[in-house]
C-alpha cells in the first residue's frame, strides 16, 4: 500500500512539475519591447505606419494575454499564444525597421540623382544665359532670370544640408522645387533666345 501511495505521490509531483514549467515568456517580451522601441526610433511610425501599428497593437495584446495566463492556475497556464504574439511583434518590428531603412535609402539615392539633375539644369541655364541676347538686348528680362537662377544655388545647398542631416524627405522636396524653378527659367531662356533669333 505504501508502495502504491508512493507511486501516486510521484505522479502528482511529476504533474506539478510539468505544470510549473509553463513560465511567462519574459525574454520574448523584453525582446519584443526592444524591437518595437528600435522601430519607433527608426521612424517606422512615419515611413511604414501600418507595420508599426500592427506590431504595437500585438504587443499590447501579448501583454494582456500573459496576464490572462498568469491569472490562471499554475497547472493550466499556457503562454503559447503570448509567445506567438511576441514573436510576431519582434518579427514585424524588425521588418518595419528594415523597410524604413530601405525606403530611406531609396529616397536618399533618388535625392542624389535629383541633386545631379539640379546641378545639370543650372549648368544648362547658365549656358543658355550666354547664348541669350547680351548687353542692352533683353537685359531686363535676363537680369530677372539671372536673379532667380542665383537663388537656386542656395536652395540646392539647403536640400543637401537636409540630406546630410538625414531629413531625406525635406531634401527631396526642396531639391524638386529647385529643379522645377530652374526648368521654368530654362523655358523662359529658350523663349527669349527664340524671340531674339526671329
Amino acid at each position: 500500500m505504501i508502495r502504491n501511495f508512493s507511486k501516486m505521490a510521484l505522479v502528482v509531483a511529476v504533474a506539478l512539475s510539468i505544470g510549473a514549467c509553463a513560465k511567462p515568456p519574459v525574454e520574448a517580451l523584453d525582446a519584443a519591447r526592444a524591437a518595437l522601441d528600435a522601430a519607433q526610433a527608426a521612424e517606422a511610425d512615419r515611413y511604414v505606419n501600418d507595420l508599426y501599428l500592427a506590431a504595437a497593437d500585438s504587443f499590447s495584446l501579448a501583454q494582456t494575454e500573459i496576464e490572462t495566463q498568469n491569472a490562471k492556475s499554475a497547472f493550466t497556464r499556457n503562454y503559447d499564444r503570448a509567445a506567438a504574439l511576441l514573436a510576431f511583434v519582434s518579427e514585424t518590428a524588425a521588418t518595419a525597421q528594415t523597410q524604413v531603412a530601405e525606403r530611406k535609402e531609396a529616397v536618399r539615392v533618388a535625392n542624389e540623382t535629383l541633386f545631379t539633375d539640379v546641378d545639370a539644369a543650372i549648368v544648362s541655364a547658365n549656358d543658355l544665359m550666354k547664348k541669350a541676347p547680351r548687353g542692352k538686348d533683353g537685359a531686363a528680362a535676363l537680369a530677372q532670370i539671372r536673379s532667380d537662377l542665383d537663388l537656386v544655388g542656395p536652395a540646392l545647398e539647403e536640400a543637401r544640408a537636409a540630406q546630410a542631416a538625414g531629413d531625406f524627405i525635406r531634401a527631396r522636396d526642396v531639391a524638386q522645387s529647385a529643379l522645377d524653378r530652374v526648368n521654368g527659367l530654362i523655358g523662359e531662356l529658350n523663349t527669349a533666345i527664340e524671340a531674339a533669333g526671329r
Binding site: 541676347p133 542692352k136 538686348d137 533683353g138 537685359a139 531686363a140 528680362a141 535676363l142 527669349a192 524671340a195 531674339a196
Partner: peptide, 9 residues
Amino acid sequence: GGGRDADWT
C-alpha cells in the same frame, strides 16, 4: 533699335 521684347533702355 527696339523690337527686343524687353525693357532695355
